[in-house]
Design a protein around this nucleic acid. Structure first.
Lengths: 329, 329
DNA sequence: CTGAAAGCGCTTACAG
DNA sequence: CTGAAAGCGCTTACAG
């Protein structure tokens, strides 16, 4: 039904090799033939099929982004950076969604084995040392975003540093009893941010108190949701001795926390994490992660590696920036 | 380097046909052979290559979502609905990003021609009659989300109705001078919502006044941004005779509008459109579009069509629901 | 600049 | 239940 390279070749009176060349910008085709081929191709609406090209050429001009949940502010921003770069370079983007959980590693490995593309961007995929090492064996271009492993190029933000700064800024305002609005304790971002939080406290000689680290009851998305933040803040406000200020693990949770404070009429200074676009509009103080830049840079990095496999592995770590707005006034 | 079906066949002492069968759940393989094949496949980490499979079988078990901008709240929600359904059904999702603009049609057609998958979900892709008709010729399963054309299955929300209800509710509160916070006038959602807005006004015998339809100056994303909303609201509040209430074309713009009101200290009741998750948390009245449901249902619909090409074409139109919260108090 | 031919790694009737 | 063989639609040395 749909036409193939053979149909075009026949109608244009040339060989299939020539048709192929026309569609591959390989210059060695006379203008006259090129024109004729393009003409008949256009008439029947011909275009090379991705699968056949991929198989024959063993490359796909496609980059695959592997992500846990896709509907998430962080990915949204990172993805827009990726796309900016990709459209500059003429690559196509495939997005593959894996489910975080016990089978994460298997799913990730599966994607690689299927050989969808020659380059992979892993966003917020957290594996352990031995699992990363294992992936290393496939010897394909992979760059990590929001994760760090010495065997692959990576682009991440110093989470410990970010949490440290946020907490410290609260301490400097004179608060002593500072809570951390948390999420799933075992998740990578929480673990890192907790370290920074503790470090800031101990530097000021304040004892860490586990009851001040509170999270909601919603497990969806590891608790990084408005609801998770809302629940957690309600709990805090109900404590016999509520915290004086609060560091939130993400802006989206902070949004929920803000509502909890509004609903109860109690208000304490809070500071979020991420700086999603919206934060500016609701006056939320936060720790800025350069999400778009991360996506853009990681993509550039990946493409470079695809072109030169022997490039030295590089780790790029951004410093988070503290942004103070009205929520901490 | 990486092993193929031939390697596995040789090592397992069977033919490649058998190996293929093992990986295709086709039952006609003895347990013993299956076990042996799986064993050696596992040892070398073999997995069929997507491109070769796609070419040989002429299908890919993949559904492709075609979207304009990906980093957008509406898509985010719709996508999560799509994914829920897809993971139930065992399909893989590919996301292809087209750039809205003059070449939109060409880009869309290009994707189809490349034959990435057997089924396509077009999200918020707005083409004209003749363009849709043209795509019809490819005779492949396509379902439209947030768009309507009689030749394809579609899932959409009645935008006219939604705008009508929002405006009407404002009128019923006694306001007469009601503004519409708009975006790019030529965009499909704006055109539809403007109709509903006008209809509500005329029903109450209020004359439509073009100066009350205001948008920001930011062109990015057709103006559907916080910034666009902020700018527009600033303009409204600066009018010699500011509106008494305002219907916003999207929640995200309403967020910006809210800030503009806060910054200037002037406040008028506003109502948004979409009901993004966040709206509940900032007390924004809005018109709810069942975005997740739309994604879920559209995907189900698409899969049914993929299995039965002769199914009658169906148009599903959701009724938007008005949700009143504190922003209209 | 152009063509004939081999090959990419699978699937799938067709036999047995 | 299993194998031999053709074919999917391209790309790419190799010749000329």
């Amino acid at each position: 039904m749909a036409s193939t390279i053979y149909d075009i070749a026949k109608k244009a009176g040339v060989s299939i090799a020539t048709v192929s060349r026309v569609f591959n910008q390989s210059s060695s085709v006379s203008d006259a033939t090129r024109k004729k081929v393009l003409e008949v191709a256009d008439k029947v609406g011909y275009h090379p099929q991705a699968y056949a090209q991929g198989l024959a050429s063993r490359k796909s001009n496609t980059i695959m982004a592997v992500v846990p949940v896709i509907s998430n502010y962080f990915f949204m921003e990172v993805l827009s950076g990726i796309q900016d770069k990709l459209s500059e370079m003429g690559y196509e983007l495939n997005i593959f969604n894996v489910t975080a959980g016990d089978s994460l590693f298997e799913e990730v490995e599966h994607v690689i084995k299927r050989r969808w593309s020659e380059g992979y961007l892993f966003i917020s995929i957290h594996l352990d040392e031995s699992q990363w090492r294992h992936l290393t064996k496939y010897n394909i271009p992979i760059t990590l975003i929001d994760e760090h492993y010495e065997g692959f190029d990576s682009v991440s933000v110093d989470n410990v540093q970010g949490a440290y700064r946020a907490t410290k800024s609260l301490l400097e305002k004179g608060f002593k009893r500072i809570a951390m609005l948390s999420a799933l304790r075992s998740s990578k971002p929480i673990r890192d941010r907790m370290i920074g939080y503790k470090r800031a406290l101990s530097e000021k000689g304040i004892e860490f108190c586990d009851t001040l680290v509170v999270s909601g009851d919603t497990e969806y998305r590891d608790g990084f949701t408005e609801k998770g933040g809302y629940e957690a803040m309600r709990k805090m406000l109900k404590m016999k001795e509520p915290p004086e200020a609060c560091f939130c693990a993400s802006d989206i949770q902070a949004v929920g926390a803000l509502k909890a404070m509004k609903d109860t009429g109690q208000r304490i200074p809070i500071i979020g994490y991420d700086d999603i676009e919206l934060s500016e509009y609701i006056g939320l103080s936060t720790v800025r992660q350069p999400m778009r830049d991360m996506g853009y840079f990681a993509t550039q990095n990946l493409i470079e590696r695809m072109r030169n496999k022997d490039k030295a592995v590089s780790q790029t770590i951004y410093s988070p920036e503290l942004i103070l707005r009205s929520s901490t006034d």
